[in-house]
């Protein structure tokens, strides 16, 4: 039983708590994803003294497919071709690996795999994109000099020179290239070169909700990628034995990832 005084007291307490809630910040995570690459916007871009790195944190990828959607929208990539895509790795107890990537992860992963009979030990997502190799096989094989390493370390495609012979598509060990059915140009991910030159992050990094994709300048000692790459954590590259020396690093990628 409650008397009138204590009832009024409690109501007042509640009102104060409620109004406090309105001004108090809601318990957001401290995860902060920067929106711009510092030191580029509004300045002269010195193409000869730039170095960039891309880090994919496999342990943070949730397979939502935001990156694939953003990528498709940024470039109007035709259906069935992917500049970036997300693979799902499923590892059974017999150490059998099952990899799938329906629509390149464009629709996200709404359903679990049902075609696997054995018990599943582990499952994880691996986003893939151009590795920006320092020794790029696609550049070596291009007969017309249409694909090249720019002085700032990007592998770009000269759309006016490309003859669509698809040598580079065969040469790429990461299957990052495709022949655009509309323009007949062998396209690939450029780490959003046009955005980087304006100081913006690549579209996929911009939209990643968990910070699984990180991009930044290696000339900037305060950037996250600089700290991670110079830090003690273990980073791997894909297909190291190919000797391509990628500038795309994976954090937390397991041995099974190829």
């Amino acid at each position: 039983m409650m008397d009138r005084r204590s009832f009024v007291k409690k109501v007042l307490n509640g009102t104060i708590a409620g109004s406090l809630y309105l001004v108090w910040p809601m318990g957001g995570d401290s995860l902060e994803i920067p929106e711009e690459i510092p030191g580029i916007k509004g300045k002269d871009y010195d193409i000869l003294h730039q170095e960039f790195a891309f880090i994919v944190d496999v342990t943070r990828c949730i397979g939502c497919g935001s990156c694939c959607v953003a990528d498709k929208r940024e470039y109007n990539v035709p259906d069935g071709n992917y500049r970036t895509w997300v693979e799902r790795y499923v590892k059974g107890f017999s150490d059998q690996i099952y990899v799938d990537s329906p629509h390149g992860g464009l629709d996200g992963y709404q359903h679990p795999r049902t075609d696997i009979d054995e018990k599943i030990r582990d499952t994880f997502f691996v986003p893939k994109l151009c590795n920006m190799c320092k020794e790029a096989p696609c550049v070596q094989v291009c007969p017309v000099g249409a694909t090249f390493i720019s002085p700032d370390g990007f592998i770009l495609v000269d759309e006016k020179r490309c003859v669509g012979c698809a040598y580079c598509i065969q040469a790429c060990p990461y299957s990052a290239r495709f022949l655009n059915p509309v323009t007949k140009v062998a396209e690939k991910c450029t780490w959003c070169y046009h955005r980087v030159r304006k100081g913006l992050l690549p579209a996929c990094v911009e939209v990643c909700p968990t910070g699984a994709r990180k991009f930044g300048s290696m000339k900037d000692e305060t950037s996250e990628v600089y700290k991670i790459l110079k830090g003690p954590g273990v980073l791997t590259v894909l297909k190291k034995e190919m000797g391509t020396f990628p500038a795309l690093y994976y954090k937390g990628a397991r041995r099974e990832v190829i």
């Binding site: 929106e35 953003a70 000269d158 046009h194 579209a203 911009e206």
Partner: peptide
């Protein structure tokens, strides 16, 4: 070709 690649129109803004 580098300049051309840098002039591709941006479609995504930021938050």
């Amino acid at each position: 070709a580098i300049t051309e690649a840098a002039l591709v129109p941006i479609r995504h803004g930021t938050n």
